[in-house]
Structures are given as C-alpha cells and as structure tokens.
Design a protein around this nucleic acid. Structure first.
Length: 239
DNA sequence: GTTCTAGAAC
DNA sequence: GTTCTAGAAC
C-alpha cells in the first residue's frame, strides 16, 4: 500500500474490524472504530471513525467529512456525532488509565475535528495535550491542534452548534476549507502560555519543557496526597 | 497525509 | 557555513 493514500480511513471504516491488524485497530464498538493515528502528534493519538459497512459510503457520502455530514439531515448528523462522542469518552478513560500506569500521572486529552481535514472519511482526533512527538514536524501540524486558533474543533463545541440558533448552525456548518486553511499559517505560539515561538525546533523544545514541568507538578501533588493519606491512616491506627 | 529539497533565513 | 521552511511530488 502506498503512503500516498488519503482514503485509507474509508477502507478501514468499510472493513470488518476483525480483519484489521492489531497494529491499526485499537478497539471498536457497534458504530465506530478506534485506530492508532499512523503519525501521532502526541504521546497518545487515536482516531475514532464511524463505521460504514455499506459500500454507499463513497467520496460524496455524508461520512466523507464533517462538512458533508453537517450539510445533510441535521438529526442524523447529531446522532452520528453523539455516538462518536460517547465512544471517544470511553477511549479517554482508557488513555487516562494508561497515562497513570506508564507515567504515574494523567494530563489533558483533546477530542475534536480538523476544520479542513486532508484525509477522507470523518475522523475524530483523540490526543493527549503534550504534543510531544517526533512526528510533529511543521507549522501546519502544530496549528491544526492549537486549541485557540479555531482549526481544531472540539466535539462538544460542534455539538453545541445543534442547540444554537439555526442561522448560527448553518454558518458554522459551512466549514469553508479556504477559511480554515488560512489558520494553519498563523505564527507559532505556545497553546499553554501564549509565548511566541520563533520556529518549530524552538517550539518543540518549549513544549517538552512545559510537559516536563507539568509532570513534575502532578507527581508532587500525588506524592503529597499519598503522604497525607499515610498520616491519617496512622492517626486512625493510634486512636 | 508524508517525503524531498531548493532556497530563504540565520 | 548550517538550519529551517514551504511547495511540489507522491
């Protein structure tokens, strides 16, 4: 299979999950598949895709991307998104468990869509907010996840459009690719502290430092809690 | 989406 | 001189 394959996710979505290799598939439910992102931009990075066993799910189908989904039946779109959200929620719990097991603390997890995705078939990104990865290589990669730029659309935000004024819904549902792609060209800045970053290598060093600092704080917090509990257990024992 | 690389930036 | 980015090819 060539690396130039922007429809691989659709292939996955149409395949019986039991036929997918464990290197690709993390888990599945009745309605979705969770796959490992092939080029993870953080320590944990998964994609949750709606399953599409019918061969109808081609390029122009409602499941091609978020824009296509939102341009169709509104109730159906809401149902698809709510289902993905529920499966992503369960995945987040598993990621947190793994964070504790492997790193001794847990940190933030983002769940959302790209405003202008490059790969076909609707996919919900679920990734840890460290953004520390060898695969994070350029401005486009980084800005596509920057939570303050607008390109990354949190699933809860997208679902809130359904409860907003219908004119607001139709405005947001347009998802004009040109409009979103401009956001990817914004200057680099740290999403945590807003500091301006001169270039990608500087940003990556900074992100690593930010995450290391968080790890240190969180582990210290856990240690303080453990000592407190140890003390109160002793007090209870001696009374 | 990634890889490759010319030439800009330093 | 080296580092880094951005656009074309895939």
């Amino acid at each position: 299979m060539s690396a130039f394959n922007l429809t691989i996710l659709r292939t996955y979505a149409q395949t019986n999950p039991s036929k997918l290799p464990p290197s690709v598939l993390f888990s599945h439910s009745a309605t979705s598949l969770t796959v490992y992102d092939a080029f993870p931009k953080a320590i944990f990075h998964f994609l949750v895709l709606p399953r599409a066993p019918e061969p109808s799910a081609g390029a122009g189908s409602e499941l091609a991307n978020l824009r296509q989904l939102l341009s169709g039946d509104k109730a159906r779109a809401q149902q698809v998104l709510a289902s993905l959200r529920a499966d992503a929620h369960a995945l987040r719990a598993e990621i947190e468990e793994e964070m504790l097991a492997r790193y001794g603390f847990k940190w933030g997890i983002w769940t959302g869509f790209h405003g202008a995705p490059s790969m076909d078939h609707l996919h919900l990104h679920v990734l840890s907010d460290d953004l520390c990865s060898d695969r994070m290589k350029n401005k486009k990669h980084y800005n596509s996840f920057h939570p303050k730029l607008g390109f990354f659309l949190d699933i809860d935000e997208v679902l809130s459009w359904f409860d907003a004024d219908p004119s607001y819904y139709s405005t947001m549902a347009k998802l004009d690719a040109k409009h979103y792609e401009l956001m990817l060209k914004e200057d680099l800045s740290c999403w945590r502290c807003n500091a301006h970053m001169k270039n990608i290598p500087t940003l990556k060093t900074h992100l690593q430092e930010e995450w290391d600092a968080e790890a240190k704080r969180e582990k210290a917090k856990i240690e303080r809690r453990r000592k407190m509990e140890e003390k109160s257990a002793q007090v209870a024992e001696n009374s």
